[in-house]
Design a protein around this nucleic acid. Sequence first.
DNA 1: CATGAATGAGGCTTCATTCAT
DNA 2: GATGAATGAAGCCTCATTCAT
Lengths: 185, 185, 185, 185
Amino acid sequence: MSRQKTIDQTQLFYETEQLILEAGYTGFHFKALAERLGVARSTIYNYYPRKEELITAYMLHLIEEAVRKMDDAIKSEEPLKTLLRIWVKYANMHQMLQIMPYIDQKATPKVEENTQKMYALFREMKKKISDVLYKGQQEGQIRTDIQMPTLVGLMMATVQIPVHHTELEEWVNEVHDLLLNGFTN
Amino acid sequence: MSRQKTIDQTQLFYETEQLILEAGYTGFHFKALAERLGVARSTIYNYYPRKEELITAYMLHLIEEAVRKMDDAIKSEEPLKTLLRIWVKYANMHQMLQIMPYIDQKATPKVEENTQKMYALFREMKKKISDVLYKGQQEGQIRTDIQMPTLVGLMMATVQIPVHHTELEEWVNEVHDLLLNGFTN
Amino acid sequence: MSRQKTIDQTQLFYETEQLILEAGYTGFHFKALAERLGVARSTIYNYYPRKEELITAYMLHLIEEAVRKMDDAIKSEEPLKTLLRIWVKYANMHQMLQIMPYIDQKATPKVEENTQKMYALFREMKKKISDVLYKGQQEGQIRTDIQMPTLVGLMMATVQIPVHHTELEEWVNEVHDLLLNGFTN
Amino acid sequence: MSRQKTIDQTQLFYETEQLILEAGYTGFHFKALAERLGVARSTIYNYYPRKEELITAYMLHLIEEAVRKMDDAIKSEEPLKTLLRIWVKYANMHQMLQIMPYIDQKATPKVEENTQKMYALFREMKKKISDVLYKGQQEGQIRTDIQMPTLVGLMMATVQIPVHHTELEEWVNEVHDLLLNGFTN
DNA sequence: CATGAATGAGGCTTCATTCAT
DNA sequence: GATGAATGAAGCCTCATTCAT
């Protein structure tokens, strides 16, 4: 019925991610993206009529995936460590979130919708972390004299800690230990 | 009647900072800057012949100031807490550093120079933090089973923790406590 | 469930007309047209390989219809009034004619052909009006001291007079009276 | 203080008018305009940041001029004929008004403002014509059995009558006569 | 120095049109 | 025939930068 497709969602999202990571939002154009994909610029417009629509669709997809994994994480034995592992694997998600303020969130209704959903999911993620920590408090392992948002904040901030380690798992162990026990002996 | 016609360095840096904070690197143009300053766009070129030159000059200035304050900090009684306080007060510096990758660092020799200096200063800052922690290790307060970059990394990551507190000092105390003693009871 | 998949000439012309009337030539695209018709854009190309071909075909069809009606009109008792009535009913034809200059009339041989035919028919229409007026002059009702093109021109210009009337027939009567007897008492 | 100007308002408006008359709204681009003016496309943007802004500014200017002339006209001896003369001299204004529907009237606040003003002036023009006709009615020359909007409409429609005459004044005389006395002997 | 004027490069989008199935 | 896919040409617009005064 029609010609063969040359770009698929997966590849499109993959190159979108790569381009943003390499060039930042400033350097993210359909021109550059088209070159990477080896298609004409206008072709992309047949899929996403607006730069912002593609970018938010991609982000939404990313965060949805992360949230799904977290759901499983919570049921694991060491939930905090598992959350940490996921959170760090999705470190680029964190980077993406930082570019949100520079996106025209009212570009099209679709963009607005995607944005809303993303923020909702992001709040959900924080909620999941809170829940794990709260459970720890109930069970007496986690201290209660620090405000919850500060606890969550520190946990989430760890994404910024560079990975000097041979294995990601080493990083996870070290940071987990540090979070739980602090700097002091 | 007419707005101020001459450019004042201080105001120039101030507006540069504001503009970047409000609009990000994407929204940082000489056009917008000139409007804020109430001068013609071309006037700015008499001071900084290149957008990148202005931006790196401003950042360099910012980081120099922070480093200077840190020098004093180290001599204080609670050096870690003082460092934390400074680091957080210069939180925007952190934001600025994140835009560095998107700046054409070879635009002009001056830009290259500024960039080099900035990175040097940034390394110096990390060194200062390391030193404080190292001293703590020598004195037996800080644990030695965690790699130094991880310690420094966590300390620096704290800028990301949102400030829900009435007073910045509360935030500092809470985060300091958390860093030292960890999540557990 | 799905919208009609085959194109029907009548509907095609109908939507063409509607779209031009609503959006003007500027807003007349195959994209918009295809949406209205509920078919793929490319489908239209199976019928009209060129935008201009469709548009001129439609116009030709419209003007042919009008000319046919005028033929009958001339045989009526009040030929001028009847012509006026037809002319006004085909007011959109007038609008269409105004977009002709902006169409690439040499796009394809077919377009050229349609255009030629249209202009011929249009001249024929003017001829018919002239004939009616000329007959009036012969019979002594219509004055002869005004150049014929001016008479015809005024008659055709009436299409621009807005219809504030409840019934179109009222408009016709009023304008007819005005044309014949003028502004004065 | 600055470089010499290469385009002035007058020339800009003149070329705008010519281009619209020749190419219609479809063919009116800054690209074409810039070529005519012999400047870079972007230069025009320094004056009018939006295509619609230029076009509406030009139209407003045109209609303002016409209204001003009409004011004088009304005091003349043969006001209706004078109005007719002016109206026809500004025939292109009429053409401009017809493209209004295809302009994005909400493009910018300035565009909206211009549009509002234009419509107001246009209503004013119609009012002036009405006033002249009304005065004629009071003085017993103009018939009162035809609705005023129809009278005004016919008068305004005359712009559409082609000028086959050697002198514009001949056209004016002929049309004026025709309007007043009608087609009949 | 300050400025208004001009410009080119580059990014954003839309649409007519072609083509393989 | 009908369609989805791809594309190029063309128009829109913004901004860094240069230049003459």
